[in-house]
């Protein structure tokens, strides 16, 4: 199980949205399993920006697992960290 900072933060945001902790696994899908609507996706994105300072775009027609969302979060964190080092 992914216990990274990104996954923990993502789970905390989803629990705040009213989703039971026991429903959240690496392979849980945002739409099929959690039935998140467009406004809840926006709330996740805003929560990540507020908590981790990153701008993640959760677009794409393909349903995403929590692990795949984490990959996007971590990639964005890496990009941001590299750009801050460059500047």
């Amino acid at each position: 199980m992914n216990t990274s900072k990104a996954m923990n933060k993502l789970k905390a945001i989803l629990i705040d949205l009213g989703i039971p902790r026991e429903s959240l696994h690496d392979d849980t899908l945002l739409h099929r399993d959690l039935q998140l609507d467009s406004t809840e996706i926006v709330e996740i994105v805003l929560g990540l920006k507020q908590n981790l300072g990153i701008k993640v775009k959760l677009g794409g027609r393909k349903d995403l697992t929590l692990a795949q969302v984490c990959d996007r979060i971590e990639a964005e964190m890496l990009t941001q960290s590299q750009s801050s080092h460059v500047s």
């Binding site: 609507d37 467009s38 996706i41 926006v42 775009k57 959760l58 677009g59 794409g60 027609r61």
Partner: peptide
């Protein structure tokens, strides 16, 4: 379009 996600709608 089948888009419902705001990022897909922007795209």
């Amino acid at each position: 379009s089948d888009a419902s996600n705001v990022f897909d709608i922007i795209a």
